[in-house]
């Protein structure tokens, strides 16, 4: 498990990405967009737990596959290339996504594609 130092380093890393403008909420991504989850945070604890239970956890790789035909809502998101989950934009915005290849090689989750944020 991450020690105290690990958490600090993560926070520092997060701040760097946010400053560089390389992060965005999952809800703003378009189909085809891929990235790695940096943070899952919602004002409502239950939504945060629901997202975590469905696999939206820090470090997981996400790819937006589809959106609905009205108002581009809901989204279909593939997590770690295995499970596809449908969720609405509102909840998706509780998931902060950064570039895919920034944190080094995790072969399990990487898709081999360039990090594309749209």
């Amino acid at each position: 498990m991450d020690g105290h130092g690990g958490q600090e380093r993560q926070l520092f890393e997060l701040g760097r990405l946010v400053k560089a403008g390389l992060t965005q909420p999952l809800g703003l991504m378009r189909p085809g967009g891929v990235g790695r989850i940096l943070a899952v945070q919602s004002g409502e604890g239950d939504i945060e737990r629901g997202l975590l239970e469905m696999g939206f956890v820090e470090g997981a790789c996400v790819e937006v596959l589809h959106h609905g035909f009205l108002g581009r809502d809901p989204l279909a998101v593939r997590i770690n290339q295995t499970m596809t989950v449908a969720l609405r934009r509102g909840e998706a915005n509780a998931v902060l996504v950064g570039p895919l290849l920034d944190q080094g090689a995790d072969t399990r989750s990487s898709t081999g594609q360039e990090a594309r944020l749209s």
């Binding site: 629901g50 997202l51 596809t84 989950v85 449908a86 969720l87 609405r88």
Partner: peptide, 10 residues
């Protein structure tokens, strides 16, 4: 409130 949709697409 509008309730969340969190649904696996198997």
């Amino acid at each position: 409130d509008r309730q969340p949709l969190l649904m696996e697409l198997p």
